[in-house]
């Protein structure tokens, strides 16, 4: 029966994916994408990857969906800019893509006799990190360098988004929610949901050390809550020149980096943790990261500064 369910969800995913590509209206396509993201997190649960399911639910459908939806809404008038390529090109593209899919499917069908895995190794070394969630172990200990660099990627992306504002608006605030007419329901929603969300985010971050969850998921929930507040006009987006914002942005990565360098002194090297304090340090990093991620993701979604700072 589980297989039937899986078949159901797989075919739904493929169908929705195809629909998304084929949909004529961009806004509709984006909505379909949100639906797709919701279904995808169910798929991740089926693959026993709860950490990923949480991330997908938070980022994949939540914040990405919001980002694309508002963009699609703003771009409604540009609909029809450019036509699809001619039929032969489509057919050629279709056949090539089908070939590639077939190749991938072939690879899926030919698994190794014993699927290679690092799970035993990851579990065996988990004690040294003091963590219980092996995914967190990978993220913050074994492959901490990737995670650290990825934080820098996030900051860079934010800078890239900011750089798209006009010269005059530099240092100003994103326009998100600045011009919306008041809407009582939305305001109500933006007042009720965030407290719940913040509690949940804290829980996510805290529990990440031992159960699925962590800084990413917690940070994303924070970001979503803040965006909600901004969109409803309850609180305005801060100017990007705000010192507080800047410090919040770098707090997580900076702490991570500092602990990494501290490793040279108090542990076996860069990004190594002393066994006794490993868990404490990692949780500390996660908390700081959750805050930074929350601010970064929210500002990423809020877009470039548009409102000039009034002196």
């Amino acid at each position: 029966m589980a297989l039937v369910f899986d078949i159901g969800i797989v075919s739904l995913l493929i169908a929705i994916g195809a629909w998304m590509i084929m949909a004529r209206d961009t806004l509709v396509a984006v909505i379909i994408f949100v639906v797709y993201g919701l279904l995808m997190s169910i798929a991740w649960v089926r693959l026993s990857a709860v950490d990923v399911a949480l991330t997908e639910a938070a980022i994949g459908s939540g914040i990405t969906g919001m980002l694309l939806l508002s963009a699609a809404a703003r771009l409604r008038q540009t609909e029809g800019a450019g036509a699809r390529p001619s039929f032969p090109v489509c057919v050629a593209a279709g056949s090539l893509c089908a070939l590639i899919s077939a190749g991938l499917a072939g690879v899926v069908l030919l698994p190794a006799d014993v699927a290679p895995t690092l799970a035993p190794l990851a579990v065996a070394n988990l004690a040294d990190t003091g963590l219980e969630n092996p995914v967190a172990g990978v993220l913050f200990a074994y492959r901490a360098l990737d995670t650290l660099l990825e934080k820098v990627v996030l900051l860079l992306a934010l800078l890239g988004v900011w750089s798209l504002g006009s010269d005059r608006a530099w240092g100003g605030a994103p326009a998100l929610g600045a011009y919306v007419p008041p809407n009582d329901i939305l305001v109500f929603f933006a007042q009720v949901l965030p407290p719940i969300g913040i509690v949940f985010a804290a829980y996510m971050t805290w529990t990440g050390a031992s159960h699925p969850g962590g800084a990413f998921q917690g940070g994303t929930v924070l970001a979503v809550m803040w965006l909600l507040v901004m969109m409803a006009g309850v609180a305005r987006a801060p100017p990007i020149s705000s010192t507080k914002v800047r410090w919040l942005l770098v707090a997580g990565p900076a702490l991570f980096l500092a602990v990494g360098f501290l490793g040279f002194v108090i542990a076996a090297g860069f990004l190594a943790y002393p066994v006794d304090y490993a868990k404490a340090l990692i949780v500390l990093i996660e908390i700081a990261l959750a805050l930074s991620i929350g601010v970064t993701l929210a500002l990423l979604a809020a877009g470039p500064p548009e409102r000039t700072l009034q002196p």
Binding site: L118, L121, Y142, L145, F270, L271
Partner: peptide, 13 residues
Amino acid sequence: IYVVGNWAPPLGI
């Protein structure tokens, strides 16, 4: 070579 965090590959980087 630098083994980051003293976690040797394949687990580490």
